[in-house]
């Protein structure tokens, strides 16, 4: 279980990115974090595993306050938090297997990671995860030889290799096409369900969020302005989060996209017939 209490973040430039953010994510819940760009979604997620240091507040993962831990303890805590990135952030020139095993770096001493002699249990588990995300036969390929969707699957396997108690997901589908996006999102939901894992997902695609998330938190200018079920996310709320004008524009764009997609599908079907 993750609990945030009155979290604040002010950058050195004086910009306030987060203001009094508090919520609880229970086990097994996948929470979507929506909001316009610049609302602080990325900062919030990075505060939790301290890639960004929060200015004030508490971040409780189990009994530990992540905001307070020191350097060596931080390393131990980070390995409990899996993270999935927007542009996959795989190490492109390492093999898929090395990328997955890099999820174990927090657990093994340097000599083991340097000689690539990970414990047998870690390797077995890495193969199992690669099989789970459907990339077993790609283990020895270099990461830059994979497609976008495949790379994100490796990213998921790397995060799960950490045997995390929490999953942080930063715009997992931003650089993927709509179909792959849904597959990746479904995979994330499934692995969280299998492991009863809490997760926070930054997501800019509101319909996708409504389709997959268990719960949605809306962020505007660093403040929580909505916290509820996807069903409760109506036009008025969305207008509030994104600003009425922007939201209408966004929705129109989405509808156009869908119409275009439907049109394309129909045409393909016609040609096939």
């Amino acid at each position: 279980m993750l609990e945030l209490q009155q979290l604040y973040k002010t950058y050195a430039t004086g910009d306030t990115a987060l203001r009094d953010v508090s919520f609880v994510v229970p086990r097994g819940q996948v929470m979507g974090l929506i909001g316009p760009s610049g609302a602080g979604k990325s900062t919030l997620i990075r505060c939790i595993n301290r890639l960004v240091d929060p200015s004030a507040g508490r971040i409780l993962l189990g009994d530990t306050d992540l905001a307070q831990v020191g350097r060596s303890e931080l390393r131990r805590q980070r390995r409990r938090i899996g993270m999935i990135f927007q542009e996959y952030a795989l190490v492109e020139r390492l093999t898929v297997m090395e990328n997955v095993l890099s999820g174990r770096l927090g657990y093994v001493p340097f000599w083991r990671s340097f000689t690539r002699r990970f414990p047998g249990r870690d390797i077995e588990n890495a193969y199992r995860l690669l099989d789970r995300v459907g990339l077993l036969e790609h283990a020895d390929k270099r990461a830059d030889a994979l497609s976008g969707g495949q790379r994100q699957r490796v990213g998921i396997a790397r995060a799960l290799a950490q045997e995390p108690a929490l999953l942080l997901v930063d715009e997992p589908t931003a650089s993927l096409d709509p179909k792959t996006s849904r597959q990746i999102m479904r995979l994330i939901i499934e692995v969280c369900d299998e492991r009863d894992l809490p997760a926070i997902v930054n997501i800019h695609d509101v319909p996708l969020a409504q389709q997959f998330m268990h719960r949605i938190v809306g962020l505007r200018a660093g403040e929580v302005v909505f916290d509820g079920t996807p069903a409760a996310l109506d036009e008025a709320v969305l207008g509030d989060i994104y600003g009425a004008e922007d939201w209408t524009a966004m929705r129109r764009e989405h509808e156009e996209d869908q119409a275009a997609e439907a049109d394309a599908t129909r045409r393909v079907a016609e040609v096939a017939r």
Binding site: R116, I123, E124, Y127, R128, D131
Partner: peptide
């Protein structure tokens, strides 16, 4: 994928 699938416990980076 069956539940009994076993996976290798050794892996060497290909040259």
């Amino acid at each position: 994928m069956s539940l009994e699938t076993t996976y290798p416990t050794r892996w060497r980076r290909p040259p």
